[in-house]
Computed example of a mutant assay.
Amino acid sequence: MSVRPSAIPSGFAAANLPLGRDPASVRRRLVAMEQMLEGLFVIPGINRRVGLDFVLGLVPVAGDAIAAALGGWLVWEARNLGMSKLALMRMTGRVGFDALIGLVPFVGDAADLYYRSNTRNLKQILRHLDKHHPATVTVDR
């Protein structure tokens, strides 16, 4: 069982991310990327965590394309972990759906607040890692 970190640790930098190909390093990278895409800060008033995916979604077309590319990186890492083709198609579908709906003004911004394709994809990857690489399981207190 893993618990998502509630905030980015102080002193967070790309230098802190492991570059190894082992499952534990991949897990830490994916969690950090998902945190950056979906949970950098809280919007006051609605107490909803948002990240780079939401901010990029505010930039017409190019922002959604960049956010989709970053979401695609999560799928690429899942492919490198040996996830099934069906799982990869589901993950790609989530990223594609998020990108397509992001092209619709206002609707896409609302979808970034509530749909969270990257969080859904991370959960699927973590289930795979927990099953096939149990030594990578982490529990944050």
Rank of each mutant, 00 (worst) to 15 (best):
K131Q: 12
N47I: 04
G82P: 08
M33A: 15
I46T: 02
G63E: 03
I46V: 11
A135Y: 06
F54E: 04
V139F: 14
S2R: 10
Q124D: 14
A99E: 06
N16D: 14
G96T: 13
R4W: 10
L37E: 02
Q35D: 08
R141Y: 13
V137Y: 04
A87T: 01
R127V: 12
T119W: 10
G39L: 10
K123C: 00
L122H: 01
E38F: 02
G71R: 04
E77C: 11
T119D: 07
V42K: 10
V107S: 01
P18I: 02
I43K: 04
R79H: 10
D140H: 13
A69E: 05
D64S: 15
F97V: 03
F97P: 00
F97L: 15
A24N: 07
V75P: 09
N47G: 05
I125Y: 11
G93V: 02
R127C: 01
D22C: 03
G11V: 12
I43P: 01
A135E: 15
G71T: 00
D98Q: 15
R141E: 07
G102K: 04
R27H: 12
R141A: 14
V61W: 14
P18R: 13
G72P: 06
G11C: 04
F41G: 01
S2E: 09
R94I: 04
E34Q: 15
M89L: 13
H128Y: 15
P134D: 03
A32G: 08
L40K: 08
A62V: 15
G102V: 01
R21C: 04
K131R: 14
G102Y: 05
R48C: 11
A14W: 14
V42H: 07
R94H: 12
T92E: 11
M36R: 01
L19H: 09
F41E: 01
D130L: 02
F12W: 12
R90L: 14
L88Y: 07
I101W: 00
V61D: 08
A69Y: 02
G102N: 04
D22F: 07
